[in-house]
Design a protein around this nucleic acid. Structure first.
Lengths: 95, 95
DNA sequence: ACAATTAGTCACAAAAAGTTGACCACCATG
DNA sequence: CATGGTGGTCAACTTTTTGTGACTAATTGT
């Protein structure tokens, strides 16, 4: 392991059963926990909660509480997250 | 899960403990099993063998036997694999 | 006051991924 | 004919990831 693999960290941030889909959905607009859970058929609360936490820790998602109607929380793409979109686009072309 | 995530397949092909590093090393030239194993400090034979099998199945690596000196096997980036290099480069910029 | 919706957490169980060490077959060298 | 290098496979174990179901706490609607 003498040589580092720079892309590895980013790949890890997007690896896991649900993170790619979450990232994909986040491109369409801010995400809310329960709604996201319903869209990810088969995902458990815990997995989604963990994935969101990790995506936030990786600074790909921003978390902010919205003090409105039914006081809730939104997860949306961060600046760094948005920079990742073109990479995703390129990946999609190679499939 | 009503919507597909096209990049997910590619991400899966590169997910796992060793695949990113293997892909990275393959960019420097053809890989041989034992040498690769020595470079991936801590990796087991089985994991490396499986990773190579999966990368080959994903058509990111080509496997060919070299009928020379100490008759051996080489794994090298396929055409599809080489197309992935610029995506890696982009990923590295975002770290 | 009671129920539902918001977004979670926690302990435990199951499943997936990785490691260990033994073993195998092929080829070449002494 | 044994030794060492090639590239693996296999069963058993450990570690990591994911799922299950119960529970919580704050806020809103009836």
């Amino acid at each position: 392991m003498q040589e580092e693999c720079p892309a590895e960290g980013l790949l890890k941030m997007l690896s896991g059963k649900w993170k790619p889909q979450i990232f994909r959905l986040a491109q369409d607009g801010p995400l809310r926990f329960n709604s996201l859970l319903r869209q990810l058929n088969g995902a458990s609360k815990q997995s989604v909660a963990l994935a969101l936490k990790e995506l936030e820790a990786a600074q790909l998602l921003d978390k902010n509480t919205v003090r409105l109607k039914p006081l809730h929380i939104e997860y949306s793409l961060s600046e760094k997250g948005r920079e990742l979109i073109p990479v995703f686009r390129q990946l999609e072309l190679l499939v």
